[in-house]
Write a protein that binds this DNA or RNA. Structure first.
Length: 171
DNA sequence: CCAGTGATCAGG
DNA sequence: CTGATCACTGGA
């Protein structure tokens, strides 16, 4: 399978969050070591109206990358320890992204950032060009489950309950 | 259950 | 400058 470098990432965050399930996340290191993972859990964060999306609190230096064209990474530190790995989706000036919550070898967004050795320098990294991280194609996964997103109690009942978390079904 | 740990942002 | 907040995790 080969790197995805077309307009795959320009679809909206909810569609992309589903489409990324089962895709291969590749991490390549300077010493030549290459490791591949299967994306197993994602969440969509969709624009300024979505009270769970960082862009709902305004366009700031931190959220600037959310406004980029789909295909670049949005990386930020949370709770002083964990690097969250997101893939920006949609068109330019439309702030939306997909959070990578779990891989086949690791579960939880904080651990994903750790196992991939993600740091702030990955913010804005282009998955279609990068030599250190990219996505490879794989067959579309159709057996997935939807559920509410995690850790967003502040977002209000509507946005808290909307089922924008997607996980590959175990069967 | 809850502490850890530090960037970020609004407010003074 | 200060203080609150936070898309989490690991260990009682």
């Amino acid at each position: 399978m080969s790197r995805i470098s077309d307009n795959f990432f320009q679809q909206d965050a909810v569609s992309l969050a589903k489409a990324l399930l089962g895709k291969i996340l590749v991490r390549s290191y300077p010493d030549g070591f290459v490791e591949k993972f299967i994306i197993t859990e994602t969440e969509a964060y969709m624009g300024t109206e979505d009270l769970a999306c960082h862009a709902s609190k305004g366009r700031t230096p931190r959220t600037e990358t959310l406004y980029a064209e789909g295909g670049v990474l949005y990386v930020y530190l949370i709770y002083g320890m964990y690097q969250m790995l997101n893939i920006v989706s949609g068109n330019i000036n439309h702030p939306e992204a997909v959070l990578i919550r779990s891989l086949n070898k690791t579960k939880g967004p904080g651990r994903v950032g750790k196992i991939l050795e993600i740091d702030r320098s990955f913010n804005g990294e282009d998955l279609r060009q990068s030599k250190r991280i990219w996505i490879e194609d794989a067959p579309l996964v159709t057996n997935y489950e939807s559920s509410p997103r995690i850790g967003i109690d502040y977002a209000g009942e509507y946005w808290k309950n909307i089922p924008w978390r997607f996980t590959i079904s175990s069967d």
